[in-house]
Amino acid sequence: MAKEYHSKDFEWEELRKQIENDPSLSYHLQQPIDYSEPSQSQQDSSAAWNTFHTTHSTAKFFKERRYLFKEFPDLSSSSVFLEVGCGNGSTALPILRTLETATVYACDCSIQALDSSIHNIRRASNRKPPLESRFHPFHCDFSTNAFPPWLACNYCKQTSLTPQHHIPDVCCNAPTDLNSFLKDGKCCIGGVDVVTLIFTLSAVPFNKMPAAISECFSVLKPGGLLLFRDYGLYDMTMLRFEPDQKMGYREYKRSEGTRSYFFSLDSARNLFKGAGFIECPDSLLVALISCLLSQLELDYCCIKSVNRRNGKAMRRVWVHGKFQKPV
């Protein structure tokens, strides 16, 4: 039987006070004055994530996000998804299983991750048509490159993602199984209903996050949602980093070269609102309507778990958010 979804095993403010009053952890609070390392190139970033997914390619590492629909109930009312940073398919698979008419477009900067996602979804498919027929992976690093125009061409973006005329130019870099769709005269798929950013944005250098979020905004249909979950400030994984692994304010680098940023509510709110997303409506009337229609939210998810091997309690902190593109 599935456990009830919960997110408040402890209060984040109590954790903050404890961490900020511990002298041994003071280096996590300091903002570096100078960044001595050059910015990571797209090629280096992709290579690091290829190494990561090659190292963690076992079935033990793959954990399907079975509680996704309890975390984000809005998924049930959508049909066209873009998963950014799909990894091994742990988010795409429950969407495809639960929603029989859903189509999931999924990108990652790592070829190894894309191969793993295809393998895991193909292995889990026991239906006809198979789940993989509604899963369209493609290679893209959204922190550096724009999404391909077959997702949403410039014309459709300028007309609120509602194509009124067909454009003769057909995008040639679409996945193979989309080529026939595009050759029918359609310029693109017309945008998506939902973008999922699940433990993806934290891997992007902080100075590249605004442009990356703007890319997500650009391919959403008006009224579409961006569902966000990522590492929160003072999560236990942040506290494990050593001082020499710190790359910036709340930014760290792992041994294989991948990065991780830890979000506060304010940093997440400012990034998404800066790109044009709605999180807190201005007027009372708009707030009421938005609450009834979409229940927009941003909060810390604080989970306490126990390591089975050593019995040590682990305090996990994630930032959970839901943002909307204005209608």
Rank of each mutant, 00 (worst) to 15 (best):
M1S: 13
K3H: 13
E4W: 08
Y5C: 13
H6P: 09
H6T: 11
E14K: 15
K17E: 01
P23V: 05
S24G: 08
H28C: 11
Q31A: 12
Y35V: 14
S36P: 04
E37Q: 14
A47I: 07
A47N: 10
N50I: 00
F52V: 10
H56D: 06
T58L: 11
A59S: 11
K60W: 12
K60F: 12
F61C: 13
F62C: 03
P73N: 01
S78I: 05
V84S: 15
G85H: 06
G87P: 06
N88W: 06
N88S: 10
T91W: 02
T91D: 08
T91V: 14
I95H: 02
R97T: 08
T98I: 05
A102T: 03
V104E: 00
A106Y: 04
A106D: 05
C109S: 13
D115G: 07
S117M: 02
S117N: 00
N120T: 07
N120D: 03
R123S: 08
R123G: 01
S125P: 04
S125C: 01
E132P: 03
S133N: 10
H139I: 05
D141A: 06
F142E: 03
T144E: 09
F147T: 03
W150S: 07
L151T: 00
L151N: 04
A152M: 07
A152I: 01
N154C: 10
Q158F: 07
T159R: 09
Q164K: 14
P168R: 02
D169W: 12
D169V: 14
V170R: 15
N173M: 14
A174K: 02
P175G: 01
D177Q: 08
K183Y: 01
D184W: 13
V195S: 04
T196A: 01
L197V: 08
F199L: 15
T200F: 11
T200Q: 15
L201I: 05
S202D: 07
S202R: 05
S202K: 11
S202T: 04
A203V: 11
K208V: 04
A211T: 12
A211C: 12
A211D: 14
A212M: 02
I213S: 04
I213L: 09
S214V: 06
C216R: 03
S218M: 06
L220V: 07
K221D: 05
P222H: 00
G223L: 09
G224A: 06
Y234R: 04
T237D: 06
P243G: 02
D244L: 13
Q245S: 07
Y249H: 14
Y249M: 10
R250D: 10
Y252I: 00
Y252Q: 02
Y252G: 06
Y252F: 13
R254N: 11
E256K: 15
T258N: 07
D266T: 09
S267M: 00
S267L: 00
R269Q: 03
N270V: 09
L271R: 04
K273P: 07
A275W: 00
A275Q: 04
G276H: 04
I278F: 02
P281H: 04
D282M: 12
D282E: 15
Y300C: 08
C301Y: 10
C301D: 08
C302T: 05
C302E: 01
I303L: 15
I303H: 08
K304L: 02
K312L: 11
K312Y: 09
R316M: 15
R316D: 15
W318Y: 14
V319F: 07
H320I: 02
H320G: 05
K322V: 05
F323L: 10
Q324L: 13
K325I: 03
